[in-house]
């Protein structure tokens, strides 16, 4: 596998939340705006890159029987660091994301990458894989956040779009809207894929 393939896998082909449908909890819960999606994506980027780096680094030292326990401790440590940092330096973002930052601990993308990739690949490739996966996760959240923010609030990145006679669809900000938006983004992604396959 070339470095480029490893990096690009998470961005499209094996996209974590739009292809593998992993990490649905933050994907549905916090995507009421693009900004929230970006903030959550950044927190996951930090946790995933550092966890994959650590797991790849010490993979030979961990006895097979307790590897999951050790991965969980590593992940929980980075998640708590991210949570505390947000609370200290970005209190507003921390309030908007609520309990979903500590919940990154149980986000299966992170444990999944540790077990499926970092525990059997080199440190460099693991970091590359983590970068691709978390950037993919981030754009997924931002895409769903954009759909919900535009339709539900009539704004994008908090800026009013100023479409005349447009009454925001409040449903898009409610949980049901999250499922609508997710469905449409996944369908659009599959549509693009099919177009490409026909061409080649």
């Amino acid at each position: 596998m070339s470095k480029k393939t490893i990096f690009l896998a998470g961005l499209w082909r094996e996209h974590p939340n739009l292809r593998q449908l992993l990490g649905m909890c933050p994907t549905l819960a916090i995507t009421t705006s693009v900004r929230n999606g970006f903030a959550m994506g950044t927190a996951v980027l930090f946790v995933l890159v550092f966890s994959s780096f650590m797991v790849a680094l010490i993979k030979r030292l961990i006895p097979h029987q307790v590897r999951i326990a050790v991965y969980t401790i590593i992940i929980a440590t980075f998640v708590t660091i991210a949570d505390i940092t947000l609370k200290a330096f970005f209190p507003q973002i921390s309030r908007a994301l609520g309990p979903y930052v500590p919940l990154i601990v149980v986000n299966c993308i992170i444990l999944g990458r540790a077990e499926a990739f970092a525990s059997r690949n080199s440190v460099g490739n693991s970091v590359l894989d983590a970068l691709g996966m978390s950037l993919g996760f981030m754009w997924g959240l931002m895409a769903i956040g954009a759909v919900r923010e535009i339709l539900g609030r009539g704004t994008i990145f908090g800026f009013r779009l100023g479409i005349i006679h447009f009454r925001p669809w409040i449903i898009m900000l409610l949980p049901a809207g999250a499922f609508f938006a997710l469905g449409f983004v996944v369908a659009f992604m599959n549509f693009l894929d099919r177009q490409r396959r026909f061409k080649t």
Binding site: L61, P63, Q65, V66, A69, V70, I73
Partner: peptide, 8 residues
């Protein structure tokens, strides 16, 4: 096993 868990 114990040592690894303890140190981590």
């Amino acid at each position: 096993i114990v040592l690894v868990l303890l140190v981590t």
